[in-house]
Amino acid sequence: MTDKVFDNNQVSIAGEVVGDFIFSHDVFGEGFYILEVSVNRLSNSYDIIPLMVSERLMDIKKDYKGKNIEVTGQFRSYNRHEDNKNRLVLSVFVREVTVCDEDYESSKPNYIFLDGYICKQPIYRKTPLGREIADILLAVNRPYGKSDYIPCICWGRNARFAESFTVGGHIQVWGRIQSREYQKKVTDADFEKRVAYEVSVSKLEYIEE
């Protein structure tokens, strides 16, 4: 299969491994594991990005915590059924991985490009401080009739631009993957801390069909 198949979903991530391999699933005898990586932001904070790694790419018995790695791949989604609901689970599906030197600095530590179609009407709003935001759910096609559903968030002029989009619109976005903690209400009295992942959009183009 040529790389052209993957042109509509491109990710590059570089950061420090902060966890152990956690088994996810296997396909025809090939095991896949979740590995979390901490990626620095310019604002001196960081994002924790989950990677989906094949046991054929990395030695899953080895401890990589504290090591710097760089990966390329795709941002993928699947629906996990829990509490009688489907929950969208996102991770970077790793196609190539390199273990880097301690002082290595990547030119693309957190980069994503997506080419897809709007599958829900974008939601435009303003924060209490007046910051403009628009949420987009983007369907990105995959081989064999599958699609990944990627939440994207736009800011400022891009948010106003996105407000005019309609379902089925074809767009391209560039940006970075970010993690965000939130509180999920599980009972009337209890909340559970969860992490959501989304694409923070820095550049946005509408493709005329």
Rank of each mutant, 00 (worst) to 15 (best):
Q121S: 15
V167G: 09
A159N: 08
Y111N: 08
D188F: 07
G169C: 03
S54D: 02
F113E: 08
Y149Q: 07
A189Q: 04
E163F: 07
V39C: 10
E181A: 14
L204K: 01
Y33I: 05
N86D: 15
T187P: 02
F165H: 03
L57G: 03
D59C: 02
S179Y: 14
L138F: 13
D20M: 11
Q121V: 13
L57Y: 04
T187G: 02
V71P: 08
R160G: 12
P50S: 04
I150S: 09
V99D: 06
G19Y: 05
G66L: 08
Y104D: 01
K203N: 03
Q183F: 03
Q183P: 01
S179I: 13
V37A: 00
V17W: 06
E209D: 12
V71R: 05
L42P: 00
S54F: 01
Y206C: 05
V11R: 03
D190W: 02
I136P: 11
Y64H: 09
V186M: 07
C152I: 01
K126P: 02
V17Y: 06
G169K: 02
E208I: 08
R180Q: 07
V97R: 04
K185R: 12
D63Y: 00
L204Y: 03
N9T: 11
E208S: 10
N141D: 10
L204W: 04
N84K: 14
I153C: 08
S12I: 10
V199H: 02
A139T: 08
S202L: 06
Y111S: 10
K4F: 14
S54C: 04
R180V: 00
M1V: 14
E198M: 09
E208M: 07
N44Y: 09
G19A: 09
L137W: 06
C152W: 02
K4L: 14
A159S: 08
V173T: 05
F21S: 07
I34M: 04
